[in-house]
Design a protein around this nucleic acid. Structure first.
Length: 488
RNA sequence: GCGGGAGUAGCUCAAUGGUAGAGCGCUGGCCUUCCAAGCCAGAUAUGCGGGUUCGAUUCCCGUCUCCCGCUCCA
């Protein structure tokens, strides 16, 4: 743990000095729970997003049955607004769960829901309610809201209140009908979205792990109810393997099924994909992604009104007037299977990933200290970020060995590669220093131009992890890099 | 939100009620050229606000941020 703590400190320092992650608004003293991605960090995150988008959507083959899947399926993308109609959050259940009037006691440091004071116990005198004991020192009821509130329109009044989305998922549900009506998709299919979400966390902690503004990569997979269990299992494995294939070691990554009492109000089953972050204790894991079986909870809620558990199933929650407590849209969001001519609410499997958490996990996993012989053959400590080539912010660096003689040829090579990849040109400092700089940025390959290049038009490619160099003709460079970077 | 600790250069750290230093890194130059070599020159810092004081980075108060513990955690 002490080593891990130390490792986390070193990683935070590296993120700052290499331009991966900065504290938001740092020159004004910072603001808790918000983070900025620097020149390298933005490339890392972009690569994570693109890997996810490619592997989930654009690279998915709608016509074949992937291994482990019950059938072929289709995938589509979507991008929704962050501010939505406030009723979305009432029907979804977020408003009730994220929004409470709370009373705190200065004396016993407890917090109570304002509407439950009469049925709560004072921790110091359990026979009385909070506030009835002599020593109680209660605050006024205070609004306690995990959703960021804003106002739509220039006039501030209660009718203009709106919320920044606390998750991207609802955008997929409320657009379910739009997607079905316009894209000719048939069950089973997924709608995927990447975007920012906002939660007013009480305690942002652990670097970027729990932030107030964060990016989600979420997919809602709609299927026939009777197939939902199989799809749930398919997506659990699929998503777990995605992280492993991008370099997270499987002994640091677990797939953990939620206990029954841990399940969300809507869920028929949830598994977390969790990573052994260095800031956690031995044997502890932090959530990267949740894969939830949401049943038909969301589509039904947005049709009929917010649901509550009713025996084994769900029923619309009713207010005192016998009408839905939080009404839905009233639109029929059932899927119409035109072949079988039946209408039903599809069931939903939701793999919901945190992009920033993935970025943090990949940073933690990449951070490596090893030893490399210097010019005299003595071992020197090296810090190297061993990113998977798909995720590396810079794919290759072009380095002239001798600044004067080799620079022009090196620049030509740089220009040849630039249209394909984010390539970096560096002629400053000794070659060893430049290699180390690229190691700390996580650049997988360094292309070095030397005296031989002018003679036979060949360069060396240095491998970041093995330090091995391979000499190849310049004409084969693009093909070679394609092969190496495609991510064996 | 509570309690404790901490904020000095890009990073890691030093020092001081009276001109704020170092190492590494960074920039320019010379020399060198396959794994952080050398020489010369240079830039960059006391989180923010207030108070005490002739003078505050140092003492006091507030605030913000970070760390640890509690609390919270779809």
């Amino acid at each position: 743990m002490a080593d891990n703590k130390n490792l986390m400190d070193k990683l935070v320092s590296l993120c700052k000095r290499q331009g991966f992650i900065f504290q938001s608004s740092e020159i004004y003293g910072g603001i808790g729970g918000f983070w900025d991605y620097g020149p390298l960090g933005v490339e890392l995150k972009r690569n994570i997003r693109e890997a996810w988008w490619h592997d989930m959507i654009t690279g998915h083959d709608n016509t074949l049955t992937p291994e482990g899947a019950p059938s072929p399926y289709s995938m589509t993308g979507l991008e929704c607004s962050i501010v939505m109609h406030p009723q979305v959050w009432k029907a979804s259940g977020h408003y009730e769960l994220f929004h409470d009037m709370m009373v705190d006691c200065h004396e016993c440091k407890s917090r109570f829901r304002a509407d439950h004071i009469g049925s709560s116990q004072c921790p110091q005198k359990p026979s009385k309610c909070p506030g009835e004991h002599d020593k109680c020192d209660l605050t006024e009821p205070r609004e306690f809201n995990l959703m960021f509130k804003t106002h739509v329109g220039a006039l501030f009044n209660p009718d203009s209140e709106a919320y920044m989305r606390p998750e991207t998922a609802q955008g997929m549900f409320v657009n379910f009908k739009n997607v079905v009506d316009t894209s000719r998709v048939k069950l089973p299919f997924g709608i995927a979205q990447i975007g920012k979400s906002f939660r007013n966390e009480i305690t942002p902690r652990n670097f970027t792990f729990r932030s107030r503004e964060f990016e989600q990569m979420e997919m809602e997979f709609f299927c026939r109810p009777e197939e939902s269990r199989q799809w749930y299992e398919y997506w659990r494995d699929q998503r777990y393997n995605w992280y492993v294939n991008l370099g997270l070691k499987s002994d640091k990554l677990i797939l953990r099924d939620h206990e029954a009492d841990e399940l969300s109000h809507y869920s028929n089953g949830t598994a977390d994909i969790e990573y052994a972050f260095p800031f956690l204790g031995e044997g502890e894991y932090g959530e990267l992604e949740g894969v939830a079986h949401r049943g038909d909870y969301d589509l039904r809620s947005h049709s009929e009104g917010k649901l509550v558990r009713d025996g084994d199933g769900f029923a619309v929650e009713l207010g005192e007037d016998g009408k839905p407590k939080y009404s839905g849209s009233g639109k029929d969001l059932r899927y119409h299977d035109q072949v079988a001519n039946e209408k039903f609410f599809p069931h939903v499997i939701e793999p919901a990933a945190g992009c920033d958490r993935a970025a943090l996990a990949f940073l933690c996993e990449a951070y490596t200290e090893d030893q490399v012989p210097d010019g005299k053959g003595e071992l020197q400590e090296r810090i190297v970020m061993k990113f998977h080539p798909r995720l590396a912010p810079i794919k290759a660096a072009v380095l002239p060995l001798r600044k004067k003689e080799d620079a022009e040829i090196a620049k030509d090579i740089y220009r040849k590669l630039k249209p394909y990849w984010n390539v970096f040109y560096d002629e400053g400092g000794s070659i060893g220093r430049r290699y180390r700089r690229q190691d700390e940025s996580g650049t997988p390959y360094c292309i070095t131009v030397d005296a031989e290049t002018a003679e036979d038009n060949s360069v060396t490619i240095r491998d970041r992890d093995s330090l091995k160099q391979e000499r190849i003709p310049v004409d084969e460079l693009i093909g070679k890099l394609h092969e190496k970077l495609s991510g064996a």
